[in-house]
Computed example of a mutant assay.
Amino acid sequence: MPALGAASSLAASGAVGVASDLASAPDDRARMLPVHPALADLFPWGGLRRGVTVSVRGSTSLLFALLAPPTDTGSWAALVGLPDLGLRAAAELGVAVDRLALVRHPGAQLPAVVAALLDGMDLVAVDPARLGDSHLRRLSARARHRGAVLVSVGSWPGADLELTPSRVRWAGIGDGHGFLEARETVIAARGRGAAARPVRAEALLPAENGVVAPVARYLPFDSGRRRVDVAVS
């Protein structure tokens, strides 16, 4: 994998900047990355604060919902070591896939690849299963230093914020017939510092049109249609 080694060396030299900075002012790195209004209550900083590590547990839809607003407004994101995630599903939930880099199989160089991407991307999502405790600490520190958002698809000890779906309910099915139209999801958030107080939010993930929406805007939940409760582990 010589190309990945070269990327790591370039990143270490300080020659790589955050991708969205190429088309914006330098002080833009201090700004918050946007989040969907239906999820805003989960973030005590008012958005995705640069430099934080966010753990997303048990929901690919929630992961894409986090990536959608930043990529749609010019930020770049990367998925590392997540070969089963599809671009079509990402696009349906609003992710601008032309600003999404995929490193499906980073192999033994996973920590170096993630580190290099944190130097050059606004958001980096990674499966932490093959990362040791020392790697986790170093990558969180690198995200803080470089002003990127590190998103863990799974448990990440010491994460600034952990998001976990606690209940989902599907709408759209009548008496033995119909189609699943929207999924109401309750999301619990807890973390460190400003995020230490546990909070919850409800959102349609996805809504009828395939994107994220507040629950109150979806009328079929109040029109007598059957809802199907699904337990989330």
Results as ranks from 00 to 15, higher is better:
D84W: 00
E184K: 07
D72C: 04
R226Y: 07
V114I: 15
R225F: 03
V16N: 03
V97K: 06
R49N: 02
V16H: 06
S13V: 00
G120P: 09
I187S: 11
R192Y: 12
G191A: 06
L118V: 12
E208D: 11
V97L: 12
R104G: 08
S9Q: 00
A12S: 06
T60E: 10
G158A: 02
R190M: 13
W170I: 05
A207V: 02
G51C: 09
R197Y: 02
Y218E: 00
D133M: 15
E208N: 10
A6H: 04
L110S: 13
G174P: 00
R130Y: 02
P157Y: 12
A195E: 04
E162F: 09
A12Q: 01
G17N: 03
D119M: 12
L93T: 05
L219M: 10
D21L: 07
P111H: 09
D122K: 14
T60K: 04
W76A: 04
R130G: 09
V114D: 14
G120E: 12
V153A: 01
D133C: 14
H145Y: 14
L117I: 10
G172L: 08
A77S: 09
R142V: 15
F179Y: 05
L39A: 08
G158Y: 07
D229C: 05
A11Q: 00
T164P: 08
P206T: 08
W76D: 07
V211L: 10
R50Y: 09
A25L: 04
V16S: 05
R49V: 00
V54H: 06
A77E: 08
G14E: 01
P44T: 03
R200P: 11
G172C: 02
L161D: 00
R225W: 08
V113T: 15
V80Q: 01
G147Y: 15
W45C: 11
D119A: 15
G210I: 09
L118H: 10
Y218N: 04
R217K: 02
V168H: 01
P214L: 08
G46F: 07
R169K: 04
A171M: 07
L93W: 12
S8C: 02
T185M: 09
A194N: 10
V215M: 10
G14A: 00
H145N: 14
G94W: 11
L39G: 05
G74N: 01
A207G: 08
R190S: 13
A171I: 02
A7S: 07
E202A: 15
A12G: 05
W170N: 00
V18P: 03
V16T: 04
L42N: 12
F43V: 09
A188G: 13
A129Q: 14
A203V: 11
A89P: 06
T53S: 12
V56H: 08
W76K: 04
F179R: 03
S59F: 09
S166R: 01
A129N: 13
G86N: 01
A77N: 05
G191I: 03
R225Y: 07
A78L: 09
A65D: 03
S155K: 06
A189Q: 13
V149S: 15
A141F: 13
S20V: 01
A213C: 11
E202Y: 14
P111G: 09
L66V: 12
